[in-house]
Design a protein around this nucleic acid. Structure first.
Lengths: 209, 209
DNA sequence: ACAATATTTAATAATTCAATTAACTCCGGC
DNA sequence: GCCGGAGTTAATTGAATTATTAAATATTGT
């Protein structure tokens, strides 16, 4: 057994699968296309992963683990002032999505294909997110009582943050088409979008004169 | 030709197609399933629409026209004070998405399948949206100069509004799973989300003390 | 009534694609 | 050197699904 050869082939398949699945989703991807992109025979893909489903699972779970980290890592941290925490959460999340811009599409399309995925994802991170949200809610309430921010729901806030960070990457092609925006301009827009989102969210929490 | 019969059959197919395509997307839907749901023979579907693609097109374009209205209708109006206009735009858009909650998924998945769709959508509404955005930018600049709001990009604002309004419906299943939220609670959350979004956006525009 | 046309169905052809099979190659241990 | 297993491929199978065909039934105009 040549370690080099098998890892290179298996890795090539995984890499190709990642690329194809990420841009097309499960149903619109073919093992043939993946094998071709990987530069291997289509049967080899089945040799290593047996089924298309298995191969997908390998790709998807790997990605999903990354998501969960970006989701609750910051919120779970102790001893960080509320506003800093929110700021860091937005930034971390944005960076993650920016470096995995096609992942949101895969998640959304996969949930439509196999709704039970949602439940598995819920089991995977639910507990920790809920804890983090509980903590966050306490802090938000406290800050509100101290007159620092307006009354705010933690769940709602999290939803807003994710919306702001994720959605632009999800509709990028349509958005560019409608606003007639070339690639360069979109990337420029996104470069400033992170701090824009931070300002936007933080500002919306503040109490206005 | 019986008007009753053909409309009822053709309509039934369209209605079934709408339902299936909206929840599964193009690739994960089968003409067999659509015909079955419509209660007609599968070949009848081909008699009326010839191809699955045609049938999809009929459904998709119909929906798309609704979208475009919700997108620029308000922004294009004259003689409405800026803040009222923004508020109305958010509300109209939210109402639209709420009554077509599965449409965002279809649009996103369709763009992944056939990227040229984006361009067609761009052609369809681009001009008008760009005009509306231009007007909005002028108004935003004016309001900023008068010290009423902070400096704001119209494109960015529109993107934020759409993000806030659309994204929750796109990830509803995952969101519910992660936060362990039953259907009733989610609907309650959405019932207050419209005004929440208005407050959120308007507030973020204001200049804080 | 009946011819022309539209609608509907059953049967099946054609296509696509995942998955399997059976053979071949390459390499390391003995 | 040759045996055995891992790696690889071409070719094929089988299932699902889109699309067509040809025949049957209903409807309308005259």
């Amino acid at each position: 057994m040549s370690i080099n050869r098998n890892t290179s082939a298996e890795e090539a398949i995984l890499k190709a699968a990642e690329e194809v699945f990420l841009s097309k989703g499960f149903a619109m991807s073919t093992t043939t296309a993946i094998a071709k992109l990987a530069g291997v025979n289509q049967a080899l893909l089945h040799y290593y992963f047996r089924t298309k489903e298995n191969l997908f699972e390998a790709v998807f779970l790997k990605k999903l683990q990354l998501v969960t980290v970006a989701m609750y890592e910051i919120l779970g941290k102790e001893g960080i002032p509320l506003m800093d925490k929110i700021k860091m959460q937005i930034e971390t999340q944005f960076d993650f999505v920016q470096s995995n811009p096609k992942l949101p599409f895969l998640v959304v399309s996969e949930v439509a294909r196999a709704p039970e995925r949602s439940e598995r994802m819920g089991v995977m991170v639910g507990k920790r997110v809920q804890q983090a949200l509980g903590k966050l809610q306490e802090e938000l309430d406290k800050a509100h009582e101290e007159g620092k921010i307006r009354k705010t729901s933690a769940v709602n806030l999290l939803l807003s943050v994710i919306s702001q960070n994720v959605f632009p990457f999800l509709i990028r092609p349509i958005f560019q088409a409608i606003t007639n925006m070339p690639d360069g301009d979109f990337e420029k827009l996104m470069a400033s979008k992170k701090e824009e989102n931070v300002a936007f969210i933080i500002n919306s929490l503040k109490i206005k004169s």
